[in-house]
């Protein structure tokens, strides 16, 4: 499985745009579709991929112990209970930032590549050492950005850096899309963003309150089989990543269908 393992870096430059949420949901979706998937938290300074996946209390060893060779890789990997195809390799303590080298990161990813078909790397925000380490180990990348000027600017900078590091392909996920604001042109439109970044659009993720709820519970939306807008978006992205042809959703049509209205009614839990 080594050669055709897809090592995908999920990065954004700016913080808080949804890298970790996308990593968690994409990991679950890919695992659900039957691919052995590993998610690697490369954000050593501020790790929270384990929180999103609800695996915090099951972490015994981390990537740090694996590198120090005080434990085996499979001891450090945390297998998700409901989704056994998904494993998490947690980040070590924040001090790892001081000594971790790109070679160490490559070593970890190399080990994961032997067992998994997908390795998703949750990249830290910024373009400093943590980012450089994560880039060194990746083959392709997904850029997450919001329809905001600052997020787009940072994403642009990151794309430039990825290009110089020969990461290909680089695809774009536009997160937290609010159809109504886009329609009234209060928000950057999809065209505005793709115009500047000039990347193939892998998917849109609609703004969804359910994301916050699921984050706090430690249950990614895709795991609980939610039919909320964001959950559908995430599983569409996973499908496209595997080469399926799924048309992009049209934000202007979202929330107007009868089904959507019914679903919204269901979520209010009146019944």
């Amino acid at each position: 499985m080594t050669s055709d393992t897809r090592v995908i870096l999920i990065c954004s430059g700016k913080g808080g745009v949804g890298k970790t949420t996308l990593t968690a949901n994409l990991g679950i979706s890919l695992a659900r579709k039957g691919s052995p998937t590993a998610v690697l938290d490369a954000d050593f300074g501020l790790r929270n991929l384990d929180l999103l996946l609800g695996l915090e209390n099951r972490i015994v060893y981390t990537a740090q112990e694996v590198l120090e060779e005080t434990c085996r890789l499979d001891q450090a990997l945390v297998k998700h209970k409901q989704e056994p195809n998904l494993s998490l390799l947690p980040a070590g303590n924040p001090r790892m930032l001081d000594w971790l080298k790109p070679e160490d990161m490559k070593k970890i990813v190399g080990m994961l590549s032997e067992q998994f078909q997908y390795v998703l790397i949750d990249c830290p925000a910024g373009v400093e050492d943590g980012f450089r380490n994560a880039v060194a180990a990746s083959k392709e990348a997904i850029i997450v950005t919001n329809p905001e000027v600052s997020a787009v600017r940072d994403a642009d900078r990151v794309i430039g850096l990825l290009n110089t590091n020969d990461i290909k392909p680089v695809q774009l996920v536009l997160n937290r899309v609010r159809p109504k604001m886009m329609e009234s042109q209060e928000m950057l439109s999809i065209d505005d963003v793709t115009d500047i970044l000039a990347l193939p659009l892998l998917g849109l993720v609609l703004e969804d309150e359910q994301v916050i709820v699921s984050t706090n519970r430690g249950e990614p939306l895709t795991l609980i089989g939610s039919q909320s807008p964001a959950a559908r978006c995430y599983s569409n992205i996973a499908g496209r990543l595997q080469g399926e042809e799924i048309p992009l959703i049209d934000p202007s049509q979202e929330g107007n269908g009868l089904g959507d209205k019914f679903r919204r009614l269901m979520q209010t839990k009146i019944f």
């Binding site: 600017r153 940072d154 642009d156 900078r157 794309i159 430039g160 290009n163 000039a198």
Partner: peptide
Amino acid sequence: FHKGTLRAGE
């Protein structure tokens, strides 16, 4: 002569 997009920060 430069071919290609110049991105933020470049």
